[in-house]
Design a protein around this nucleic acid. Structure first.
Lengths: 245, 245
DNA sequence: GAATGAAACATGTATATACATGCCATGTCA
DNA sequence: TGACATGGCATGTATATACATGTTTCATTC
């Protein structure tokens, strides 16, 4: 009668499973309209708040689309564009048990940054920019080259930190707690300096992770370049919300 | 008194903003314990259900960590590993107004796939594998090379579809509604055939997106290789939950 | 026929209440 | 001192109720 599973999970989870099952079986096709909350209340025998919570969570998870006053619809499949989790290379090395070492190549405050940097980084052109160049090693083999342009207004003592210890990324995150991030991944042939620092053949492939971060309404910007030698190819991996069967 | 903003947003949003503001300002440090729900009810003057919803959503968004019977705590910053949205190259081209064309280079059912493919793809070795090789053009310039190995048990008529029309990825999604996906991004120098098909210099950099998908408990696997010419570098971009200031 | 208005219906939010569940500290008893 | 029971407090869920807000439909009116 109730059409809900009898497992031990909470009621709103059962309602979610019920909806997902109907979507997965094709009974409710893409863009089809679901029964109204009150219909589900009557057919499933749970309160409207419970149904509402289930539908709200499924909406925030991308399975449904709801329009106030109109109805609830099956959302188009979301993997059109796919989420990927790019992991911190230092943590990856640590998880694999490798020994990590960082080498600081360059550390400077650029007073009058080039126009190209300013525009692509959305910096305030009148302000100086901090610049760092760090190489990460795993077992004495260079793995990653990090180039950063940081707005000193946002992170005052950026150049004073200890770059050879772990925490450059953590340091930035601590200074800028709630940020927005934009990434751009591309592949380029290694230039002369990059090839030298990473001890790789020139024009070999580099994975470039361009990372731009904002902090609230501040126009200030923190940037990170990450170069990954292709021989490591540990790029990124993601397994989305997994539900054990 | 109420410590909540007086904007027009709903109450639970104000509570969320209140919590986020306290985290962002550093008043509530990482791993610090938040006031209990009842404390917030008293200090903010809203009902416990409203507080609870706010805290629950912040938890699912990764800002908080809650333990039943113990309390609510500020979660460590989550950008340790970062989510990236890899967009479909065909949609990107369409959004930019470019003309898209697809060329099918190869289409075959491999009866006895090589052991390397079988193992890396987790296919059943005794079963044949469908293989396709498609080049995507934008304005007659080759942009992307797609190589796919598909389990025919999962997608019966994979080779029968019209590869020159848009929807190879959409086709797979339609056949496999609720899937898990794993991605691996790397960069490799283009091999001879890849260089020829993409009209790029050999050994120039290629962005490789390895994509592995599951469907429920089925061991069947769908795989996608995507090669992106470096001159396009339109890799991927992501802006997480953006809140307009 | 067109414009207006009201009813019907959809989702969205807020609250009070009740009970369930899990953890911890305290106190009692052996 | 140790084991165990218990009460207090935290979060988790479920419900009924009320009202808010947005959309559609349909009847009325001009």
């Amino acid at each position: 009668m109730s059409a809900l599973s009898d497992s031990a999970s909470p009621l709103y989870e059962k309602v979610k499973d019920f909806v997902l099952a109907n979507i997965g079986s094709g009974k409710w096709a893409q863009n089809a309209r679901l029964p109204s909350e009150n219909d589900l209340v009557n057919s499933l025998g749970v309160s409207r708040m419970t149904v509402h919570r289930a539908l709200r969570e499924l909406t925030s998870e991308g399975h449904l689309r709801r329009v106030q006053g109109v109805g609830t619809f099956v959302a188009p499949p979301k993997a059109q564009s796919t989420l990927i989790e790019v992991s911190n290379i230092i943590n990856e090395i640590r998880d694999r048990g490798g020994k990590h070492r960082a080498g600081v190549i360059l550390l400077e405050r650029v007073e009058h940054p080039a126009a190209a940097i300013v525009s692509s980084f959305e910096f305030d052109q009148t302000k100086p920019v901090d610049h760092s160049l760090v190489v990460h090693f795993e077992n004495d083999i260079p793995v990653q080259l990090e180039e950063r342009y940081v707005n000193p207004a946002l992170v005052p003592h950026y150049l004073d930190q200890d770059f050879t210890s772990i925490a450059t990324l953590e340091y930035l995150q601590r200074c800028t707690p709630l940020t927005e991030v934009e990434h751009l991944i591309s592949a380029v042939p290694a230039g002369p300096e990059q090839a030298r620092l990473l001890q790789m053949p020139e024009r070999d492939s580099c994975l470039v992770l361009h990372r731009k971060t904002w902090t609230g309404a501040t126009v200030a910007t923190v940037n990170t370049f990450t170069h990954v030698g292709s021989r490591y190819s540990l790029g990124s991996r993601y397994r989305p919300t997994h539900k054990p069967a």
